Amino acid sequence: MPLTFTLDPAVTPELRDGLLDLWTDVSNADGAVGFVAPVDRETVRPELVKHFAAMAEGRTRLLVGYDEDGTVAATAFLAFNTHRLMTHWVWAYTVMVHPRHQGKGYGRELLAATADAARSFEGIEAIRLTCRGGLGLERFYGSCGYKEVGRIPGAIRVAPGDDRDDIVMLLPLH
Rank of each mutant, 00 (worst) to 15 (best):
P2F: 04
L3N: 02
T6E: 09
P9R: 12
L15R: 06
R16F: 07
D17F: 08
D17V: 08
L19N: 13
L20R: 09
L20G: 03
D21L: 07
D21N: 07
A29T: 03
A29S: 12
A32Q: 06
A32H: 02
A32W: 06
F35S: 12
V36Q: 07
D40H: 10
R41K: 09
R41N: 02
E42S: 15
E42R: 13
V44A: 04
R45H: 03
K50L: 09
F52R: 02
A53M: 01
E57W: 05
G65T: 04
A76Q: 07
A76H: 09
H88E: 15
H88G: 13
H88Q: 12
H88S: 13
V90S: 05
W91M: 12
Y93F: 14
T94F: 15
T94G: 15
V95T: 13
H98E: 11
P99F: 01
R100P: 10
Q102N: 12
G103L: 13
K104C: 14
G105C: 13
G105E: 15
G107P: 14
R108D: 08
R108Q: 12
E109D: 08
L111V: 08
A112W: 00
T114W: 00
A117Y: 01
A117P: 02
R119E: 01
S120L: 05
E122D: 13
I124W: 00
R128W: 01
R128I: 02
R128Q: 10
L129W: 03
R132T: 14
L135V: 14
F140G: 01
Y141R: 10
S143Q: 07
K147P: 02
I152Q: 08
I152N: 03
P153I: 07
I156A: 12
V158T: 15
D163Y: 12
D165H: 09
D166M: 10
V168L: 15
M169K: 02
L170D: 12
L171E: 05
L171I: 04
P172Y: 07
